[in-house]
Write a protein that binds this DNA or RNA. Structure first.
Length: 265
DNA sequence: TTCCATGTTCCGCA
DNA sequence: TTGCGGAACATGGA
């Protein structure tokens, strides 16, 4: 689930539930999600502090702590999400890290497959240097940066959109959607796109990401001509009715319409 | 039982 | 040097 639009919604969720509450206790229930860092770092640094504000860089959510430079970073892997609990109910699902606030409410980081990460950084530069992330697809990639990225890339269009060190935030699902909305085949080489195609791709990249956020990432709320709800074998193109095809691009499954997105020569 | 899955990383090869 | 395929990581559903 978690690509840029999902993480943006997680950010808003955290903002509306957990900001400005003093942390009482941090329970690391799976040490695998804290990466190289010691669980003690979280359990000793965080209690007594408050989440002050949040920001998002690509698929990473960063939370600033009040009266400190520390940044608490969340990455959601393929299966991560938050669950805010206001009652003493028993934990369900796959809780990996639980933040308990002094008012008794809890913010649960749930991640079934444990491919996500909860980690503490001294400051923003420390985070950036470790993660090697490019500019955020929604907030930091302007037309000229996009132009440079696409004309300099030797990779296929889909791979280029997904490369986090070039553009941060787009994953497998939304790269398919952006290419579908632009009418570009996922295997087309990025550098062979015409200027007019790069213009459209840039616009659609922003449009699709914003639309997904506005739709709260729910397929039913997205425009009727979106591929996302039809991204499965045997479904038909929401624009022309053709059978949707599935292929592999750089090892990832790619869905596309062979009529709307013509194959490269 | 086997294959596949929204993420990232690492290795070998072209 | 860049990009690709494949494997690995961890877990579960079809």
């Amino acid at each position: 689930m978690p690509e840029l639009p999902d993480v943006e919604l997680f950010r808003k969720y955290l903002d509306s539930t957990s900001l400005h509450k003093t942390i009482e206790e941090v329970d690391v229930r799976s040490e695998q999600v804290v990466g190289d860092r010691q669980p003690e770092e979280l359990t000793t640094v965080l209690p007594g502090r408050q989440f002050y504000s949040s920001l998002r860089q690509g698929k990473h959510l960063l939370v600033e702590l009040k009266k400190s430079n520390y940044l608490l970073e969340f990455h959601f892997g393929m299966t991560g999400f938050f669950n805010y609990l206001t009652t003493q109910e028993k934990l369900t699902g796959h809780p990996r890290v639980v933040f308990t606030f002094v008012d008794g409410t809890r913010l649960v980081y749930d991640c079934q497959r444990k491919l996500g990460e909860v980690s503490l950084f001294e400051n923003f530069d420390g985070f950036l240097s470790v993660k090697n992330l490019g500019p955020d697809a929604l907030n930091q990639v302007d037309r000229s940066k996009f132009e440079r990225i696409f004309t300099n890339s030797r990779a296929m269009a889909k791979s280029t959109l997904m490369k986090q060190e070039k553009i941060a935030g787009i994953g497998n699902i939304y790269s398919d959607e952006i290419l579908f909305q632009t009418g570009i085949h996922p295997r087309v080489k990025a550098s062979t796109l015409a200027k007019e195609e790069r213009d459209r791709l840039f616009k659609k990249m922003k449009e699709v990401l914003n639309t997904a956020i506005e739709s709260e990432v729910e397929p039913e709320k997205m425009p009727p001509d979106y591929l996302l709800p039809h991204r499965s074998p045997g479904s038909s193109c929401p624009k022309c009715g053709e059978d949707i095809e599935k292929t592999k691009v750089s090892g990832r499954s790619a869905y596309f319409c062979p009529r709307c997105q013509k194959a490269p020569k």
